[in-house]
């Protein structure tokens, strides 16, 4: 087989996650069960090969914790917003599809941004352009240019936060040069 061998370090987050799922499903976190789970995780990761996720090699826990707290708050806000719109606005809601160019070219970063954006208020990813890292976002209750600018800024700020947590050095430098949290206009 000609495929590239994934290094153990790259595989480690996946293996840890698989062991946690194994322990959770057996409701048993005793060392014996975890070791057996780790063996199975290794076999599964080797036999059912997936393209490795390219991590940047850095993860800032201090920035991740506030991000997670803010994220959970936004999930709550999003739910109440949709509830409000569903009950009081209903059929007359106005939407928009907006192109938002991202800074990062890494698949992981685009995926993470897309996931977070889909769960926070008012936005959903309709289309991803991998070659130019552009997300096409469907925004609910977007009526004016100001709303569009707000949506675009929200997406790019989310990406900036994610880069600060787990982006590469180069991406970090790009953000710093930009004077975060400044925003860029769309390259329509």
């Amino acid at each position: 087989m000609s495929r590239k061998r994934t290094s153990f370090r790259t595989e480690l987050p996946l293996l840890v996650w698989l062991v946690v799922v194994w322990g959770a499903l057996w409701r048993d976190f005793s060392p014996g069960n975890l070791v057996f789970g780790a063996l199975i995780a290794l076999v599964v990761a080797r036999v059912f090969y997936l393209p490795p996720v390219e991590l940047s090699g850095r993860f800032n826990v201090l920035r991740a914790i506030p991000f997670v707290v803010v994220f959970l708050g936004k999930v709550v806000a999003a739910s109440f917003q949709v509830l409000y719109l569903a009950v009081f606005r209903g059929p007359s809601v106005t939407n928009a599809v907006v192109a938002v160019p991202l800074r990062s070219r890494s698949d992981l970063m685009v995926t993470a941004t897309g996931h977070v954006i889909s769960l926070i208020p008012g936005s959903l990813v309709v289309e991803v352009d991998r070659s130019t890292s552009t997300l096409y976002i469907h925004g609910i209750n977007v009526r004016s240019d100001a709303d569009i600018a707000k949506l675009r800024k929200e997406v790019q700020d989310t990406e900036a936060s994610l880069i600060r947590i787990m982006g590469t050095r180069a991406e970090m430098d790009a953000i710093q040069a930009e004077g975060w949290p400044a925003t860029r206009g769309a390259r329509a």
Binding site: V75, A78, S79, Q81, V82, L83, L85, A86, V87, G90, P91, S92, V93, N95, S118, L119, P121, G122, L124, V126, H138, I140
Partner: peptide, 15 residues
């Protein structure tokens, strides 16, 4: 109550 598919997807995901 939402009028089109994509607004309905908002309702189906977030709350």
């Amino acid at each position: 109550r939402f009028p089109d598919l994509m607004s309905r997807m908002h309702a189906a995901t977030k709350p």
